[in-house]
């Protein structure tokens, strides 16, 4: 399986995403932001960082890069795309995902581990997560408060596009468990066709017990299993 990891001028979690995927025994390579094609990859990671310095709005400038036009095409064709942290912001800004990410409610950058409840287990990103499993994954962001208007939120719920929510150790969606004030404790969503997803927490940082959690692997492994199924089907 081959993943492509986008590299914007100030991506800084690109290497971590590559590390996490290679650690699972799969191929991963960088795709430079000036590229106009994503090449022969089977899935794309839009990594965290500050893409173009984020001087306008997080992810606002990245959407105009040549590579993002290719990513849009890839997604339209049903390719799997996952945006992490700043990558989630980029996907929202470019319209591949609904909603927006605004300043944390506490107005401060937050770096800590959170617990994630998986709200829909029937997507390529979540199918591999056991039903009662809370994912322990770190966050590190200043603008991760997810916001969507009522109409969008209703659509998200109706289409089961809410994939991950901040929860406490009992799986309850409490205010205390919500690190940034996100509406409905939303940590990550998908598009209506469930092939594009984004989340603020960093699954690529929770990829080895040495780093204190390997729960993030469940998300990548889920994508890999689904892709393996797809390629098998194609061969058959």
């Amino acid at each position: 399986m081959k993943f492509g990891v986008l590299q914007f001028p100030a991506s800084n979690c690109d290497q971590d995403a590559i590390h996490a995927i290679r650690h699972l025994g799969h191929e991963a390579d960088y795709i430079w932001h000036k590229e106009e094609s994503v090449g022969d990859v089977q899935a794309i990671v839009v990594p965290g960082g500050f893409s173009y310095g984020d001087y306008l709005r997080c992810g606002a400038i990245a959407q105009f890069s040549p590579v993002m036009q290719a990513v849009k095409k890839f997604a339209e064709d049903g390719g799997f795309v996952i945006g992490i942290c700043n990558g989630f912001q980029v996907l929202c800004e470019s319209g591949l995902l609904p909603g927006a990410l605004v300043r944390n409610k506490a107005l401060k950058f937050r770096c800590e581990h959170v617990l994630l409840k998986t709200a829909n287990h029937k997507t390529p990103f979540t199918a591999g997560t056991p039903h009662d499993k809370l994912l322990r994954i770190p966050i590190a962001h200043g603008e991760g408060c997810y916001f969507a208007d009522d109409e969008t939120l209703k659509k998200l719920k109706d289409n089961h596009q809410i994939l991950w929510q901040y929860a406490d150790s009992n799986g309850e969606l409490t205010d205390a468990a919500n690190p940034n004030g996100s509406i409905n404790n939303i940590a990550g969503v998908s598009n209506a066709t469930h092939n594009v997803a984004g989340l603020m927490p960093h699954p690529e940082r929770a990829c080895e017990s040495l780093l204190d959690s390997a729960d993030g692997n469940l998300i990548f492994e889920s994508m890999i299993a689904k892709l393996a199924g797809v390629s098998e089907a194609a061969v058959a």
Binding site: N12, Q15, R110, C111, P138, E204, R205, E208
Partner: peptide, 11 residues
């Protein structure tokens, strides 16, 4: 203090 710093980037 330290929760304002990204202390985990670079895996």
């Amino acid at each position: 203090v330290f929760r304002q710093y990204d202390f985990q980037v670079r895996n």
